[in-house]
């Protein structure tokens, strides 16, 4: 199976479109995704560079989820081009998977594997790099305990959780485990689709901080956000309305007028 070179976290990734700082980590140009009636994405172009923290804003149905799905390769646009670290998505299986392995997604429903332990879940982030023997061993044995302990520590969880089944965790713990799993994957591009949607305000703020902290010069973050009040830690904000980019500017420069234009009448309240 995919015997991509096992990259240990922290090392710069080798091969295939190695990040050079002039290439954008993620580049969308003229992306169109058809939908019923009007297109879900309409000639969207944007570029995100290493070390950038970008928030994606917009009312429901604006195309935020579609944009993220295009960005992580799950949704194929009808036209336009996509580049990850300067390279277009590969067509054949293995190179494509090697590209995907460098994109980490934080799903709204987390998509943890309920039946497995925290340890096994964390290790599942390494499956793209591991061969079968290790993948099977992970189901039988405690593999890579040290790395997992470290990942948990980064999200303020104790190593005693490693042996727990994921289904036994609390909501907050699950969120953190999901982020720890992303850390184990060590992606260069971090995508997150409304990760804070169903969290209480305190937890949402904590987790957002945790995510923002993961951004290093060799890692970029694109996060769709339903609460403009949480923009503080971001470098940039992109406003999406009816499948089109309305604005793309530094986060600190977003004013009430921009939001009014973006959300129209139904502007979400600034925090509860």
């Amino acid at each position: 199976m995919a015997e991509a070179p096992a990259r240990e976290p922290g090392q710069p990734s080798p091969g295939l479109g190695a990040p050079s700082h002039d290439l954008p980590w993620l580049e969308l140009s003229q992306i169109t995704v058809p939908g019923r009636g009007r297109p879900r994405l309409d000639r969207v172009s944007l570029a995100i560079g290493g070390g950038e923290r970008v928030a994606l804003l917009g009312p429901s149905g604006a195309g935020k989820s579609s944009l993220l799905a295009v960005a992580n390769g799950l949704l194929r646009p009808s036209s336009g081009s996509l580049r990850w670290l300067g390279a277009p998505p590969a067509r054949s299986g293995r190179p494509r998977r090697r590209q995907q392995a460098r994109i980490g997604t934080l799903w709204q429903d987390l998509r943890l594997i309920e039946e497995l332990s925290v340890q096994q879940n964390l290790n599942s982030a390494r499956l793209a790099a591991w061969g079968w023997p290790r993948a099977l061993l992970n189901l039988l044995w405690a593999v890579d305990t040290a790395a997992n302990r470290e990942a948990l520590a980064q999200v303020d969880l104790g190593a005693e959780l490693l042996a727990q089944p994921v289904s036994a965790l609390s909501g907050g713990q699950r969120q953190r485990v999901a982020i720890a799993r992303l850390l184990r994957q060590d992606p260069e591009l971090l995508l997150a689709d409304e990760p804070l949607a169903s969290l209480d305000p305190r937890l949402a703020a904590e987790l957002l901080q945790l995510l923002l902290n993961q951004v290093t010069p060799r890692r970029a973050l694109l996060l769709s956000l339903h609460r403009p009040d949480l923009l503080a830690g971001f470098d940039r904000a992109i406003g999406l309305r009816q499948g089109q980019v309305l604005f793309d500017q530094p986060a600190c420069s977003i004013g009430p007028a921009d939001l009014e234009a973006l959300y129209g009448g139904d502007q979400p309240g600034f925090g509860p």
């Binding site: 199976m1 995919a2 991509a4 992580n72 390769g73 799950l74 299986g93 494509r96 998977r97 090697r98 590209q99 995907q100 392995a101 460098r102 994109i103 980490g104 997604t105 799903w107 998509r111 599942s124 982030a125 499956l127 793209a128 994957q185 992606p187």
Partner: peptide
């Protein structure tokens, strides 16, 4: 899907 999205075979 999530695993596939992360490049797992």
């Amino acid at each position: 899907l999530a695993l596939k999205g992360a490049g797992v075979g």
